[in-house]
Design a protein around this nucleic acid. Structure first.
Lengths: 91, 91
DNA sequence: TTAATATAAAACCATTTGGTTTCGTTTTTT
DNA sequence: AAAAAACGAAACCAAATGGTTTTATATTAA
């Protein structure tokens, strides 16, 4: 692994099905952590950890609003995935 | 997780950088395990485990030829990834 | 026939992963 | 002012991950 690589890349971030579901939810509208959690059978803390990994991959961003933290989708890094995939289109 | 999901899906298979490099090598030509191993600083056993995960995701196939096992690329499952990605193109 | 090559399988190990519970802080509601 | 809501951080845990070494087996080469 090269040193320039960030800790959690896009490939790793989307490997988990829960994280992919979070991305899908956020594609509709921005949501607070508790709202995201209400869609899953796991704890808010677990969702928070997934959000941290998605944030490190720069697939989501979050801002504090009052006592809530609102997350929204940031799909640009998926371009890396698209580019990687394009190489295999010729086969 | 749905019950219909196989143990190692494409998303998981491509999450590891070594496995992505193996796919790239196999995109040029089919290779025996030892030939693949010669491109990496890790053991043949470790490469074999990666090949098993890639096989479960149906991204590669292997056949025994004499004492060698030859692996080749099987890119069809990447279509699932492409389809998943397409959803996010609109953003 | 003996040695070397290519692999498989198993046991083992440290670290990461994906989850939990608990506790504390800030903000809003009553 | 007190209670409730939303969150962060820390400690903890079992299982998975990505690697190793060792041992055994089949095939090819000398």
């Amino acid at each position: 692994m090269s040193a320039s690589q960030q800790k959690h890349d896009v490939f790793h971030a989307i490997a988990d099905p829960t994280r992919r579901e979070i991305l899908k939810l956020l594609s509709e509208k921005e949501l607070a952590i508790s709202e995201i959690t209400s869609h899953f059978p796991i704890s808010r803390t677990a969702i928070s950890k997934h959000l941290r990994i998605l944030t490190e991959a720069e697939l989501v961003s979050g801002r504090k609003v009052g006592r809530e933290k609102i997350y929204w989708l940031h799909p640009e890094p998926l371009k890396e995935l698209k580019h990687w995939l394009a190489f295999y289109e010729k086969f």
